[in-house]
Amino acid sequence: MKFIKNNAVKTLRLSRRELLGGMAAVSAAAFFPWATRTWADSPGATSEQAIQDFLMLSERLTGREALDARIAGRVWQALLDSDERFADRQRLLAQAMDDANLIDMRSFKAFAATQPEALTQTAVAIISAWYLGFTGSVQGHSATDNTRFITYTGALMFEPTIDATVIPTYSRGHSDYWVDPPASIATD
């Protein structure tokens, strides 16, 4: 538990209470379609612990202190739906990171060099889902593919540039603002 921060735990608990409350009242699926398989098909305690572990692992992998617990549930479910062995892979990855005492993610490349390819892929799949907001690979000229939607505005890839560009479909305000560079240009 050493990597989880108190605020994240609180967020997670809040979120979980909403979920469980929803299930008790009617059906979790009605409110949270992504949750159906987890909470309907398997014992709640197992999933709760798995998601909590997943949130901790995600925070280690992304180097962030307070990821959104609701998004964590969606990422976890999407990865599980894509790969039925994901829970095992997640456990193996966390164990390997513990064993290697991998805390600072700047050392990830060196860590990956000592690990099986599949384990590195699991780590990148988790980080990728958080950053891109979806899992899977987009097929360009096809009506279907193996992607799963997680979040749009919550995708972490937008945070580093949010003061300079837009999350597409949203706006910075008015026509022709774009003739000037971002205020940060001198230090970019």
């Binding site: 993610m105 891109l132 890839m157 560009t165």
Partner: peptide, 24 residues
């Protein structure tokens, strides 16, 4: 930008820095 960096196993704080750097 992000997919390319992840393909090169750039993660953690460096990932955020590089997203901004490369996106610009």
């Amino acid at each position: 930008v992000t997919q390319r960096l992840l393909d090169n196993l750039i993660v953690g704080p460096e990932l955020d820095d590089r997203i901004r750097h490369d996106a610009a």
